[in-house]
């Protein structure tokens, strides 16, 4: 209860700051529009206004403050404008319409999920290999760790274009980017997890004369799950970023990344913000689903904290 109150306070404070910041940022545009509509503004010369800061313009035109929250193309849209746009483009449009954010979200989400499934599957396989083969561990593991420190997302435009030139397009290139972004976190986390049973536990399995496969299924795999889920949460967020970035370089026409790009070409700020929030909501829903799975599974296994 107390936590909820605290969160609401913080969110409320962010809203207040947001509305307050929108006033000076949009004042210039608001004044120009008001003048065109025939309203008295101070100072009347556009030349003079250009050299003044947003704050001083605001102080001279207090009557226009509410207008800064209703502009068509604001520099910073007010929260309710974004909310209305989100509502209009999700609930009010047909799902298969090109202007529906659900449609664009689904395009991105399908690439994300496909890539995430591939990346996670391969990551787990590689981790199993690493844990069971010393030479693989020694050769591959350092590279997997180093790869975490480099911005591999820079490969994204190249992958899209190269695959396009050999005739593969659509969902696959984006899914590949998503896959390799989620791959390395899963490898590193899963190796840590499969190694987490301590000497006592492996000794016990040894005492039972368990085979390597039995040790794997009954001890290593179950005890790796908390680690796996921690990296799945990182991985699915990275997958989504990968799918969004994968939509940028080819000028894709559908997907959340395409909405961001189109918005920035045509100065449709409200569209950018609503696409951004749609991506944020999608990310938190995905992480939330992984979290729920984690809670449910770990509780059934008696591992929940």
């Amino acid at each position: 209860m107390k936590t909820l109150l605290a969160i609401l306070t913080v969110v409320g404070a962010i809203m207040v700051i947001w509305y307050a910041a929108a006033v000076p940022m949009n004042m210039g545009t608001a004044i120009s529009e008001a003048q065109r509509a025939g309203v008295e503004v101070t100072p009347p010369e556009a030349q003079v206004r250009r050299d003044m800061s947003g704050t001083s313009l605001t102080l001279k035109n207090l009557g226009l403050i509410s207008a800064t929250w209703e502009l068509k193309r604001p520099r910073l849209p007010a929260p309710h404008q974004v909310a209305i746009e989100l509502w209009d483009t999700t609930a009010m449009k047909k799902v298969n319409s090109k202007r529906s954010l659900i449609y664009h979200g689904w395009v991105t989400l399908s690439a994300t999920l496909l890539g995430f499934a591939f990346g996670t599957g391969l990551g787990i396989l590689l981790a199993v290999g690493i844990v069971h083969s010393k030479v693989m561990d020694m050769s591959v593991m350092p590279w997997a760790i180093v790869s975490q420190t480099i911005p591999i997302i820079a490969l994204a435009p190249m992958i899209i274009v190269v695959l396009y030139s050999i005739g593969i397009q659509g969902i696959i290139p984006k899914a590949i980017i998503s896959a390799y972004l989620s791959f390395f976190p899963v490898v590193v986390g899963m190796v840590k997890g499969l190694r987490s049973p301590d000497a006592m536990q492996t000794d016990l399995m040894h005492t039972y004369s368990a085979s390597q496969a039995e040790t794997f299924w009954k001890l290593r795999l179950p005890s790796s799950l908390p680690y796996l889920f921690a990296s799945l949460k990182v991985g699915i967020a990275a997958s989504l970023v990968g799918a969004i970035v994968g939509e940028l370089p080819t000028g894709a026409v559908s997907g959340l990344g395409a909405r961001l790009l189109a918005g920035s070409y045509y100065g449709q700020t409200v569209q950018i913000w609503s696409a951004l929030f749609a991506a944020a909501i999608l990310a938190s829903v995905l992480v939330g689903i992984v979290g729920l799975l984690e809670r449910g599974l770990l509780r059934r296994m008696g591992l929940s904290r």
């Binding site: 969004i244 951004l276 938190s284």
Partner: peptide
Amino acid sequence: FLRRGLLPVGNFAAALPIVGTAPILVM
């Protein structure tokens, strides 16, 4: 109080695709 409020919001924000703010900030 601040910690209780900021930590969930911060964790939420840390998982977001923040690169998406790039077009806005470039503008």
